[in-house]
């Protein structure tokens, strides 16, 4: 599954610390995201998964630490570093579609503002994105409030893909979806990663998603990355919380599912 082209760290987080008052979310956290991989980030509620994501993309200023993009540090002071924003797409947990714009306008907006396209060109490309994420063309003129949960996620992914990013940040993409839609979304991420050569940073609680799409898994806890590696390596770590996470009732079911998939494939 791992792309064999141009390996090496795309993003490196080193010594990241985040504090909210007395509450230490991250302490000296190190993490690297390799080119072409899908890295799953898991951890208990409040372990700072979202804060880590927000720190990397520049929406949250960390108390300490450095974030490197291809070896050069990012400067998120004031606004997220354009070096990062022009090659990243972000899928927010609840979609964050602009509620005053239609689906087509949501996707056209970055194309017109950032790529400088005209209205007709932007809409033509928006349609490709809509189709790429498996939505019907007739949904293009709908407002977000008329879309179902699964459609919102797809639409938000279409918007994240608007500027042809090579780096994608997904915050709980399958949360709130039914199992069929969630499985379809997993396949969509895989297809797009393989077709577009994306690098994906994926925050999730969904064990099935971890099994299906992630090349590596990082477990956050106690303020740092407790372990990182392939799912099998991580799941067999000798740690109580990790065992409970991956080998609890839900974890076992997902493991079984995944191994039967592998056999039948």
């Amino acid at each position: 599954m791992v792309m064999d082209t141009a390996r090496g760290a795309l993003i490196e987080v080193s010594g990241l610390s985040n504090r909210f008052g007395d509450h230490r979310v991250h302490e000296n956290l190190d993490l690297s995201l390799d080119k072409g991989e899908i890295l799953g980030v898991v951890g208990g509620s409040g372990s700072g998964k979202s804060v880590l994501l927000r720190s990397i993309i520049g929406l949250h200023e960390p108390n300490n630490g450095r974030i490197n993009l291809e070896g050069a540090p990012l400067d998120h002071r004031g606004a997220p570093d354009p070096r990062l924003t022009r090659r990243t797409g972000v899928l927010f947990q609840r979609g964050a579609l602009y509620s005053s714009l239609t689906l087509c306008e949501n996707i056209s907006l970055p194309l017109r503002e950032k790529a400088g396209l005209g209205k007709a060109d932007a809409e033509a490309l928006a349609l490709t994105r809509i189709r790429l994420t498996g939505l019907e063309a007739k949904t293009a003129r709908l407002y977000p409030e008329a879309l179902s949960g699964g459609m919102v996620k797809r639409a938000a992914l279409a918007r994240a893909l608007a500027l042809d990013p090579d780096l994608l940040f997904l915050d709980e993409p399958t949360a709130g979806l039914d199992p069929i839609s969630a499985a379809a979304f997993d396949e969509l991420i895989l297809t797009l990663r393989d077709a577009l050569g994306l690098t994906v940073f994926l925050v999730t609680h969904d064990l099935d998603t971890l099994h299906r799409v992630c090349d590596r898994v990082a477990v956050l806890g106690q303020g740092h990355v407790m372990t990182i590696g392939t799912l099998d390596e991580v799941a067999n770590m000798d740690d109580e919380w990790i065992r409970a996470y991956f080998h609890g009732a839900r974890g076992r079911a997902a493991m079984r599912q995944s191994s039967t998939n592998r056999e039948s494939a």
């Binding site: 082209t5 003129r141 050569g197």
Partner: peptide, 23 residues
């Protein structure tokens, strides 16, 4: 990878329909 990209986009475009007209 390039063939995959072309085929994915071609599939999306093959039965894409057209944008509904704006109001």
């Amino acid at each position: 990878a390039r063939r995959a990209l072309l085929i994915t986009v071609a599939n999306a475009m093959a039965d894409c329909g057209t944008l509904p007209p704006e109001t």
